[in-house]
Design a protein around this nucleic acid. Sequence first.
DNA 1: TATAACATTGAAACCGGTTTCCGTCAAGTC
DNA 2: GACTTGACGGAAACCGGTTTCAATGTTATA
Lengths: 389, 389
Amino acid sequence: MDEKLTIQDIARLAGVSKSSVSRVLNNYPAISQELRERVMRVVREYNFVPNVTARGLAGGKTRLVGVLTPPLTWPAIPEMLRGVAEYIERTSYEMVLYSINFENPTHTDVVDRILSLRMVSGLLAILPCDLTPHLLKHFERGLPMVMINDQEPPEHFPCPWVGVDNRTGGYQATRHLLDLGYRRIAHVMGPKRYYCAQERFEGYCQALREVGLEPDPELLLQGEFDPASGRRCARELFARERTRWPEAIFVANDQMAYGFLEVAEEQGIQIPQDVALVGFDDNLVSSHVRPPLTTVRQPFSQMGAKAIELLLKMVDPDHVLPRARAAEDEGHTEAGARMTPATGPLAAAADGSGHQLRVHETSAPYRLDGAIHIQLDTSLVVRASSVPA
Amino acid sequence: MDEKLTIQDIARLAGVSKSSVSRVLNNYPAISQELRERVMRVVREYNFVPNVTARGLAGGKTRLVGVLTPPLTWPAIPEMLRGVAEYIERTSYEMVLYSINFENPTHTDVVDRILSLRMVSGLLAILPCDLTPHLLKHFERGLPMVMINDQEPPEHFPCPWVGVDNRTGGYQATRHLLDLGYRRIAHVMGPKRYYCAQERFEGYCQALREVGLEPDPELLLQGEFDPASGRRCARELFARERTRWPEAIFVANDQMAYGFLEVAEEQGIQIPQDVALVGFDDNLVSSHVRPPLTTVRQPFSQMGAKAIELLLKMVDPDHVLPRARAAEDEGHTEAGARMTPATGPLAAAADGSGHQLRVHETSAPYRLDGAIHIQLDTSLVVRASSVPA
DNA sequence: TATAACATTGAAACCGGTTTCCGTCAAGTC
DNA sequence: GACTTGACGGAAACCGGTTTCAATGTTATA
């Protein structure tokens, strides 16, 4: 039925030239209604779909965007990709997945090889870590690109960028513990080289100061965002004499919080009765650990969707979704958990879409009113680890 | 530097025709050593990479394969894709990810749209569930395809297929419990419409019979492969009077086992002291739940790798990996867990690569000695849920 | 030494679209 | 009524490769 028809065949069947068929298929404006209908009838009858490859060659635009990700086994990645996939499914674009292994020392070469193929019309780089400077070169050379990246200070970052407001997130976590009456609140920080780690820490400090407390250096620990460092910090903290324990701990990500849960289990420490715990991220797992983790939720799938939306606008400004937008991201928070929208003192003027927009200057060719930085809001998810049953 | 060079430019720079450059780049045999070197020098100097799109148009083969998956938030999917991605990274192919939502009633249309674009030269369909009959039509129409699918009986299944030996897996789980001395062993079965559920059940029965026990209908429960049905079965079981409880339970997948853990926690039932538990799958989460789950590990990433290897062989028989194969799949089993290779009574003649090969007849155009079905081995991962500390 | 067979390489056709260029025709202007 | 203008649509060039075909130079065969 739909066997290898070409635009030429359609032209012949409709009794027109192939240029006309092409024009009809691409919604060229100066086309008479009659021609359009004549062509479309044949197109529909034979169920004709133009060859993407030829289209790419001739038009200079492939309808492909690349998505560069760390290994999919990183907790946040599948959620983000879900957002990307659900958005892209409603467009005429497809996604080429480049899952790269940062441990491979040649990963910059891998990226070069990928991009030199010029197969994709744009790139969404998810948490590119130390690859960022290298990617920026490609961006500055003209490759449309959006990063989901919370590791670089957004000031003057030239590339369009999607992330969350980590400062308000840190504030939310700490404020929650303060509201429950805790006063000796420890913080396990992420690596200082990451901007998000600093921001979460600042939110923590700000919440403390708001109630007249000063951050206590004895209650600040340094982690590496992985479970192992969480375990290490937990052992260090719980090895102190009981009177020097904190009443509650805000851990800068869920992975490290898992380490705390493990050590607590080992040592028979009850959470939250002995020590309350709040994490950051709300990974899919976090509602299934024991006790379920109170945490600050990052809207990962929404971040993916926003980022790909932005990228498609850069790649193809006339791009319109063929179908209406589906229902908003529903998240995976299980029934029973309370969700608190961001209400920190840092809440900036929203642009109506529920997220905060910051616009910076950029010299890159694909600017949309300057480099757009989209910052989404976090929300607190309260579960058993911070609230005694 | 590598700005939009064409094969024509290279030809001019090397003082040869573009046909010659093309031949060199494609390893055409009848090429003089001198010409080859002359061209390659220029290619390397200018870092030339031929345009994939043009290549696709002219050669009739895009170097793209599609990967059709259920939502990435399904537990096994990221692991499988890791295997696919790691393999594909070492080839000249790229993967186009089609993550489809089975709940969308129009998902067969989505598949049709995707495939009618003819963008991909082959398709890897991961756990396509009820999409299988529809996909088979495309396969029979000539689209190279491999399925990772444990839901269809392999007999006479026309399409190349990768899965695990579920029967031996069920045997391993049950045998392990028997070896620990348990005799009253319950089984929570998956949906009967899935072949894997039946096979796991048969393995269970066989292990029991081997020690002279007959499966007890009272100890057989019917689940749906999700946590909710696990909870339901758990409540049903634990609502019985204590003397009618089993000593141990083999649950047909980890998700349902999580439901058991939750209900046990709720009702203060100690696992494994009161009841021992073994799951199936070894999801990434399963080592982090409390207590860590003993389970039958499916080599998901290896399945992905095998499947994509098979697919590429179908798409491009002359396909050779540019680099040597990297180290074998290392899995994610944490240190301390014991791994038992499959040694069930069903172990078939291995083909040297450590997996079992079954060859069936097929009428599809892309046969390699008939439809290849690759069955990988499962392995038991022993953790605290079955072994009292 | 003449000739057939083979190895090597360039010219040109082709893949299936998009886009430029140009001719035609009808409506609008003076 | 002649001329300008713009809408419309066909012919042909083009995108950047692969592949067929034919020409050339070499080597083997008789």
